[in-house]
Write a protein that binds this DNA or RNA. Structure first.
Length: 549
DNA sequence: AAGACATGCAACCGCTAACGG
DNA sequence: CCCGTTAGCGGTTGCATGTCT
């Protein structure tokens, strides 16, 4: 680190600075490639007290701004960018130093639940704190939560957010920017469900668990979920491409036609899955997400700030997806994927805050130690570890009943997944993690849609659907499944739904998809969301679907 | 005590919006 | 409208330090 690069951002140094003793002091490396234009390289690395003094003195005299002038007017061999950062993060007055107070921590958590990774905006709410501090804090928190197997958002924050949002129904309006931010910033991939095809979505999605929990959606779904890249459109395209790739269209045809069966077949799915939580006594209030959670270790990746460049134990190319695309409408997805009693924030990530309760979770809820502050994470983790073995697994806890406390932190999903993890230590993380990928950042709305959260949604009766708030009702889908069109609205179908059972030759299909869609999606959709190479590296996408049969 | 490993933090990097000529 | 500059933001990196074995 602290390498010297050409530093295109920084201006060239003036010749009269060449002899400055500041140019080469301190611990940071200053040698290396010559700076653009032949001048001496600007210094990088840690600031020295001498440099700090110069910068402080300059700002006192000239005020903030015009940072490039700092270098020109002082002997400082730092680019303006570096000066600004140093001033903002360390030298400016009224900066708070030291650890965050519990109050600050709570505020950060709360702000992040609303803003996502908008560090600067969050910093504006924390006087004396810098965006960098907050960012580092959050990253640390993510890591700790990951290690501890705890959600990033404590129940208290979730509940508070829920209360706030209930008061402000505008958060649920389609196209609401705040809500976009809210979720996008979390790295949540929010599929592009439109308001008018909710029922179609739910019908289609209700089959999702039957399919690979990760499967194709991890690879394609991000793109397919987009309005601009409706999967069915792609499928049609594939069908039309028969001349190009004989055999492929058969696969697609079979897959597409199979979708039509989905709307009549949820019971079969339920039986196949062995999850009977769908028809719990008070199903409207119970969302159990046996696969909606994440595995141990996956969570950190779900929270938006993990490096996308670092390997995440899998071939998936992690990119910031369309979640930052304001054209996508997470709110509509939110609204219709949320069970009536759920708050959208609870869906940010079933692992972040599972709506599902477990005995331990309930006790956790009642515990004073549920603030989610960093110092408490260790305690929670310990509690979780110690209590894990006593908890009924999700497989046997399908009758768990949701309570107000169920906006809890500990999800049975975790247990289930962890059990699986322990049983299949060699399994690739992203293969079985619905919310795999950088969470939400990189991830997988379609996968989330595949989760029984969405599944559950499909089981919401009309009456239950009507129980949605008036704001939601205003967004009542106009699409009527019974109006002669039993097929789910094509553009919202999960791609893996099509491929679950008709992909005997996955390699052919992989290649075809990559060939046919890669370019197209690169041009029409967000670039980088689809990595054909990932596809071919994901044989388990097909294998998993077999497991659910 | 020493090496390995994990963690936190400061700084850098790339990108982009805003602005002015 | 285009282009260059500047400021700012969010993501990433790697050193310094702490902890573990």
């Amino acid at each position: 680190m602290y390498r010297v690069k050409s530093e295109s951002d920084c201006e060239m140094m003036h010749q009269d600075q060449m002899d400055s003793p500041l140019a080469d002091d301190g611990g940071g490396s200053s040698g290396g490639s010559p700076h653009r234009g032949g001048g001496p390289p600007l210094k990088k690395g840690p600031w020295t007290s001498a440099e700090d003094a110069i910068l402080v003195d300059y700002v006192k005299k000239h005020g903030e701004g015009n940072w490039n002038a700092v270098q020109k007017n002082t002997g400082l061999f730092r680019c303006g960018k570096s000066c600004r950062l140093r001033w903002a993060n360390h030298l400016r007055p009224n900066l708070k130093k030291g650890a965050f107070t519990p109050e600050e921590e709570r505020l950060i958590i709360q702000l992040h639940s609303k803003m996502g990774n908008k560090w600067a905006r969050m910093a504006a709410h924390l006087p004396g704190r810098t965006d960098n501090e907050i960012k580092n804090y959050w990253n640390t928190r993510i890591k700790r939560c990951q290690r501890a197997g705890l959600p990033v958002y404590p129940a208290s924050v979730i509940n508070q957010s829920a209360n706030e949002d209930q008061q402000g129904s505008s958060d649920f309006n389609c196209g609401d920017n705040l809500s976009n931010n809210h979720l996008n910033g979390n790295g949540l991939y929010l599929p592009d469900f439109t308001c008018d095809n909710f029922i179609a979505n739910s019908e289609a999605l209700s089959y999702a668990p039957q399919l690979s929990a990760v499967s194709i959606s991890n690879l394609l779904g991000q793109s397919f979920a987009s309005k601009r890249c409706g999967f069915m459109d792609q499928a049609r395209m594939l069908k039309q491409s028969d001349s190009l790739l004989p055999g492929l269209s058969d696969t697609v045809n079979g897959a597409v036609s199979s979708v039509d069966q989905f709307s009549n077949d949820s019971e079969k799915l339920r039986q196949a899955l062995g999850f009977d939580y769908l028809h719990e006594a008070n199903s409207s209030s119970k969302i159990i997400a046996p696969f909606g959670g994440a595995l141990t270790g996956s969570h950190a990746y779900l929270n938006g700030t993990f490096s996308a460049s670092r390997s995440t134990n899998g071939p998936l190319k992690m990119e910031l997806p369309s979640l930052q695309d304001t054209e996508s409408d997470p709110n509509s997805w939110l609204k219709y994927t949320v069970a009536p009693t759920m708050h959208p924030t609870e869906l940010v990530d079933p692992y972040l805050q599972s709506p599902t309760a477990t005995p331990s979770a309930k006790s956790e809820c009642a515990s004073p130690r549920n603030s989610g502050l960093l110092e408490e994470l260790l305690h929670q983790a310990e509690a979780l570890r110690s209590g894990k073995n006593q908890q009924p697994s999700v497989r046997s806890s399908s009758s768990s009943v949701s309570t107000p406390c169920d906006t809890t932190v500990v999800s049975p999903d975790f247990d289930l997944c962890q059990e699986y993890w322990e049983e299949h230590p060699g399994a690739m993380l992203h293969e079985y993690v619905p919310f795999s990928g950088n969470s939400l950042t990189e991830s997988t709305a379609p996968v989330s849609a595949a989760s029984p959260d969405a599944f559950q949604l499909s089981k919401i009766s009309p009456a239950e659907s009507n129980s949605l708030g008036s704001g939601e009702q205003a967004m009542e889908p106009t699409y009527e499944p019974g109006a002669g069109d039993a097929s789910p609205r094509p553009e919202n179908l999960r791609p893996d739904a099509f491929f679950s059972g008709n992909t005997a030759d996955s390699s052919l299909f992989n290649n075809a998809i990559a060939m046919l869609l890669g370019n197209d999606m690169n041009t029409e959709c967000k670039p980088g969301l689809f990595d054909p190479s990932s596809w071919s590296n994901m044989p388990h996408a097909f294998q998993m679907s077999e497991e659910f049969k």
